[in-house]
């Protein structure tokens, strides 16, 4: 499945408006914001349709997945938006991750747990905000808001550059900071960044560059750490390959169109996360050319003068300044 899908669910007193862009959306936040009520309304509509007085408008069927028979239920659900409320233990299982990976559905999961087996984006972690009050003529109106915003790109973090991976992304940033005051190291995986920051102590002064497209499960604890350590800056592009594509060095109209509306091009059945799609796109677009890209080892051409400068120009000013200051 691909595309942007909008949902409106409405009863006499409540209204929810939501937009889903990727295969996995996570809803969390404070208690009593209406998360379970949303899932209840969808379940009621699924069971009893318009008899409930609930109005549900979406271009796709909406279903609720729950309980120990979830695998059997899911085997009958295709091309739908599947909601899972909190209290369903299976969401953190390897079996569920496997089912999501090959599914034609989008999944909306209500949980505060870090789902380490699922590569969900840090931009698709939402809370629900409501306005209005019961008893007035207008229904209480619920909308989603992003839990994690751009405040992560704050000042500080000029002493060390930590990359999530140890492959091409690390090769690039390592070379870009070569001979400079700022040191580049690899964390050896997203799941190791928290431990590394811990090891660096309370006076840590580091910029972390990680793949935002699959960083959702790490964000809770990293965010908590950042609340307490001012010297951590976090930059979360979709992926390193996305940075290269967005820099425009390929000068390719199709790439520009894709980056404008990735959700219209990325099929969740083929790509578990957007990060994997962008890698595939870059490999395919450069195949057989002088810019041939390999994720395991960076083609040195990406480190040459103008090319390197254009890639660096995509970085946010605070991150670029940290590199410039280092250089």
């Amino acid at each position: 499945m691909r595309g942007r899908h909008e949902l409106r669910v409405e009863s006499a007193h409540l209204r929810y408006d939501m937009t889903f862009l990727r295969n996995i959306t996570v809803i969390q936040g404070d208690s009593a914001t209406g998360k379970t009520t949303l899932v209840d309304m969808i379940r009621e509509y699924q069971l009893n349709g318009s008899d409930t007085g609930i109005s549900l408008v979406c271009d796709l069927p909406c279903r609720v997945l729950e309980g120990s028979t979830w695998e059997e239920q899911l085997s009958y659900i295709k091309d739908s938006i599947v909601f899972v409320d909190e209290g369903n233990r299976f969401v953190s299982s390897v079996d569920f991750a496997r089912a999501v990976r090959s599914s034609s559905n989008y999944f909306v999961i209500v949980t505060r747990e870090a789902l380490d087996n699922l590569p969900y984006s840090v931009t698709e972690v939402y809370g629900i905000r409501s306005s209005g009050r019961y008893g007035r003529l207008e229904p209480v109106y619920h909308q989603m808001y992003r839990i994690y915003g751009d405040e992560v790109l704050r000042n500080g973090g000029d002493g060390l550059l930590i990359t999530e991976d140890s492959n091409a992304g690390y090769d690039f940033f390592s070379a870009a900071t070569s001979g400079a005051d700022i040191t580049c190291i690899s964390a050896g995986g997203a799941g190791k960044i928290f431990a590394l920051l811990q090891k660096l102590g309370t006076n840590v002064d580091a910029t972390v560059v990680a793949d935002g497209a699959a960083f959702g499960s790490q964000m809770g604890r990293i965010h908590q750490l950042m609340q307490r350590r001012s010297g951590i800056r976090l930059y979360l592009p979709e992926s390193f390959e996305w940075i290269i594509l967005a820099s425009g060095i390929l000068d390719d109209k199709e790439v520009r169109d894709i980056l404008e509306r990735p959700h219209d091009f990325i099929d969740s059945r083929e790509f578990f996360s957007w990060e994997r799609y962008f890698t595939s796109l870059l490999v395919n677009k450069t195949d057989g050319t002088w810019m041939q890209y390999s994720k395991t080892r960076l083609n040195p051409v990406y480190l040459q003068g103008a090319t390197k400068s254009r890639i660096l120009s995509i970085l946010p000013p605070t991150v670029r300044e940290a590199l410039d200051a280092g250089c």
């Binding site: 007193h13 409540l14 208690s31 009593a32 379970t36 009520t37 209290g87 009050r133 019961y134």
Partner: peptide, 30 residues
């Protein structure tokens, strides 16, 4: 404190969002 709802007695609860509800309709948190 959490749901901004008042217990009315006899198991009924007055919610500012949902109206008069049963205890099973309290928030998952509370």
């Amino acid at each position: 404190g959490v749901d901004h709802s008042r217990v009315l007695g006899n198991g009924a609860i007055d919610s500012p969002v949902l109206g008069v509800i049963a205890p099973v309709s309290l928030s998952g948190g509370v």
